[in-house]
Design a protein around this nucleic acid. Structure first.
Lengths: 227, 227
DNA sequence: GCCAAGGTTATCAAATTGTTAACTAAAAAT
DNA sequence: ATTTTTAGTTAACAATTTGATAACCTTGGC
């Protein structure tokens, strides 16, 4: 899976702030852009479509509130996190910032580490859960657990639940041999007791339905996905 | 869709804090539960499965960090927002709280209005699809949630509320299989207990009313929209 | 040939879903 | 206020699909 780095734009009129925060963001693995005022922030945002924008509220040209409002009126930045940063420590600004669509509001002075930590927490929350089912793609075979769907060469093959789960288990680690015991505990669960031939029968059904040799028998050991 | 109020659990050993924050949360339309220590927080969390938990860090029995860690080790609370609240104002706690899985970390004293505002911002961010009422258009089928209206091939079909909500849920992510549990919690809500056949009956009504094969059964798993 | 391991098939039981009708509660109409 | 309509739910039963097993077959090694 393609793992482009997460892009963050930081807009502040104090070069020192930009420098120190950029440093910490880079160290945390983000890709960083910067802007020195509100207008530049909008320009850079349009160019790079960052995943997160850190906005100082008091900036020349256009202040943070204005930039935030502009971004939120644009569908392009729907999913862009906005972190507002300010030396003002008043309740009104705080609430205003959040109501304009800010995702976080942080008072200066702020430890760069804490800021990075907060941003990471936001990303963690909005990212689709890591436990989400992942699509397996091998040559012309697609196995999609979120749809319980197996597509071979453009044709959808409908597998029953157990068949699908068995295939998915094996295909998740192509080449690896799964012992019969492993297969039983993963697909059937630990407390279920089924007979010796059950796995074989299911393997057969998969072979028949897909019509390809994708599950290899390893005699005396188990089965592996090999395609 | 499901319009049950958002549930928030607040855990703090100072009754005054609970009272004032509860007041503001209730005023903002949330349903509020409270706990006076860490153990009670966990109990109440298990009973009510709140959408957000506000945890004071310094509490008797189990402190906020411990509760946070416990919640995060439980899949049941995957999607539960955790806001950590503390009078300690040190960088280490702040980072620790976020790394343990907290979604926000707020220093006391905090204006209740600001706190509510922050929580609302978090919900706004994580529930983008829950609030957006987008029209779904697939071939000659239009599903318009703003009007609770389904148009197939120019003809308007009137679906009842639950029928419509079920169809909309599935159609919002075509192809994706929704487990029966997911459907129940999305359309009927977490607290409602309905019988096994209820979903089937509603699916049938949709099928009959629309007269097309748009909902596919995935036996042993759930249903998906496929048209 | 004999044995062990796996393959194949048919069959039956169990699980799951589909269908219909009836009941209840709420909303709308009279 | 009463009746009528509608939506939602449930129960009972039918239909279907899936899963498991037994029985038998095939293959390869010794």
């Amino acid at each position: 899976m393609e793992t482009n780095p997460i892009k963050i734009l930081i807009a502040d009129d104090e070069p020192d702030i930009i420098e120190i925060i950029s440093y910490h963001l880079l160290k945390a693995g983000f890709e960083v852009f910067s802007a020195k005022d509100g207008s530049e922030a909008i320009e850079k945002a349009q160019i790079h479509t960052p995943d997160c924008i850190i906005l100082d509220i008091m900036m020349p040209k256009r202040n943070g509130f204005e930039v935030c409002e502009y971004l939120r009126s644009n569908k392009q930045f729907d999913k862009t996190l906005i972190v507002l940063l300010t030396a003002l420590n008043d309740e009104e600004s705080h609430i205003k910032g959040l109501e304009l669509g800010g995702d976080d509001f942080v008072n200066k002075p702020i430890s760069p580490k804490v800021l990075v930590s907060r941003i990471s927490a936001l990303f963690r929350r909005i990212q689709p859960s890591a436990t989400d089912n992942k699509v397996i793609q091998v040559r012309d075979l697609t196995i999609d657990p979120s749809q319980y769907k197996t597509i071979l060469n453009g044709v959808t093959h409908v597998l029953a639940k157990k068949e699908f789960e068995l295939l998915f288990l094996l295909a998740a680690q192509p080449g690896r041999v799964f012992l019969r015991n492993e297969i039983l505990s993963q697909v059937w669960g630990n407390d279920v007791i089924v007979g010796d031939r059950t796995i074989d029968v299911h393997v057969r059904k998969i072979r028949v339905k897909l019509g390809i040799e994708c599950i290899t028998t390893v005699k005396g050991v188990g089965y592996k996905f090999d395609y």
